[in-house]
Write a protein that binds this DNA or RNA. Structure first.
Lengths: 136, 136
DNA sequence: CCGTATCCGATCCGATACTG
DNA sequence: CAGTATCGGATCGGATACGG
């Protein structure tokens, strides 16, 4: 993606930052520390190497991700969130996660939540719509 | 957009919700209360009616926006954020705004910030990188 | 004022093959 | 393990015209 220099509104930029299909997921995977390329590819279900590299490059251009390369074999790099915009964006992504979870619960998509360990069987069973509002 | 029913992760849904070019901006415009269609079209620079209606429809499907129609002429409708997911998403969008503003400041795109009244001349002048971190 | 339909170029993204 | 290059179908989004 070619980065523009004529944005007329901050949210326009943010849209360019996260519009890619995998951007938020990639960022979320880095929230607990640096990750190697293969590691990310393993953890993100359905992504391929080309997409991963492409989107990482854009995240770097926008200043949300930093890349650190290590010498020697086997080759190794580390991708991590930047302190300024990377970490800040995680706050937004965390909230968006809640919105996604809310949608899944409301639409009976509980399997994925269990599989990923986002919620336990018991937690889901306990949830009434009223409680959900509070949780959010 | 056809809404899927096989999402494997909450962020995948959120991506579908906000990937459209205007979604976050539309939501942000509704943060202070219901808006009519023409009103939104006037306030969002660069959008056209087709896109607006299209994206509103999707936001309704995902439960972030509600639509209320009023009888009589002239025709009138009101679009507003839903309490659950709409309002919650605004929290995320507000944070994303900060990220966008940060990017604009760092890249000398201060004109748009002044025009939209997001920041004043003085506020911008006062900002050192260190202060910016705190502001965020 | 509000909403629908169509056409068409631009872009996104997945598959695949290849290099250091 | 990390990264580049290409190709082609699917999707997106802007223009434009028309209908309630």
């Amino acid at each position: 993606m070619k980065i523009r220099d004529d944005y007329t509104c901050p949210l326009e930029i943010v849209h360019d930052i996260i519009k890619g299909k995998w951007k938020t997921i990639i960022l979320y995977q880095m929230k607990d520390g640096p990750k190697g390329l293969a590691e990310l590819e393993r953890e993100i279900e359905g992504i391929n190497q080309k997409m991963l590299l492409e989107q990482l490059k854009e995240l770097i251009q926008f200043g949300l991700v930093e890349k650190k390369s290590f010498e020697g074999y086997p080759l190794h790099v580390e991708y991590s969130l930047t302190k300024r915009r990377g970490q800040k964006m995680i706050e937004a992504i965390t909230i968006m996660q809640m919105v996604g979870v809310d949608y899944m619960l409301e639409n009976g998509m509980t399997e994925a939540l269990l599989e990923k360990g986002i919620m336990s069987q018991e937690e889901i069973a306990e949830l009434t719509p009223q409680k959900l509002v509070k949780t959010l």
